[in-house]
Amino acid sequence: MTRITGTVVDIADRTADGILTVSAPALRHSSDGKVIDRIRVDIDISAGVIAANTLDPGPAKLVLETGGGWQEFDVNIPDVPEIDLYELVSDYVRYTPPVVGAAQKALADALAAAKRAEAAAASANLLPDGGTTVRSSPSPVPAWHGSIHPPAAEAPATDHLPSPPPHTDRQR
Rank of each mutant, 00 (worst) to 15 (best):
T21G: 05
V22Q: 03
P25R: 14
P25G: 04
A26G: 02
L27D: 13
S31T: 06
S31F: 10
I36P: 00
R38C: 08
I39D: 12
R40G: 14
V41R: 11
I43Q: 02
I45D: 00
S46W: 00
S46F: 09
G48W: 04
V49F: 01
A51D: 10
A52T: 09
N53W: 01
L55T: 00
P57Q: 01
G58Y: 04
A60K: 03
K61C: 10
L62G: 02
L62W: 01
E65G: 00
E65D: 05
G68Q: 06
G69N: 14
G69P: 08
G69L: 12
E72R: 02
E72F: 02
F73S: 07
F73M: 10
D74A: 10
D74E: 11
N76K: 03
I77Y: 03
P78G: 01
P78N: 00
D79K: 11
V80G: 03
P81D: 03
P81L: 05
E82D: 12
E82L: 07
D84V: 10
D84E: 04
Y86H: 15
L88A: 00
L88Q: 00
V89P: 00
Y95C: 02
T96I: 09
P97N: 10
V99T: 12
V100L: 13
G101R: 08
Q104H: 08
K105S: 15
K105W: 03
L107E: 12
D109Q: 12
A110L: 09
A110I: 05
L111F: 07
K115N: 07
K115M: 09
R116K: 12
A117T: 07
A119K: 14
A120M: 08
A120Y: 06
A120R: 13
A121L: 15
S123N: 15
A124M: 12
A124P: 03
L126T: 08
L126A: 09
P128D: 03
P128L: 04
D129I: 13
G131I: 00
T132V: 15
T132P: 02
V134S: 09
V134Y: 09
S137G: 06
S139L: 08
S139I: 11
V141F: 11
V141L: 14
A143I: 08
A143K: 06
S147F: 10
H149Y: 15
H149Q: 11
H149F: 13
P151L: 04
P151M: 00
P151R: 03
A153L: 15
A155F: 15
A157E: 13
H160M: 09
H160G: 14
H160K: 07
L161Y: 04
P162D: 09
S163F: 06
P164T: 11
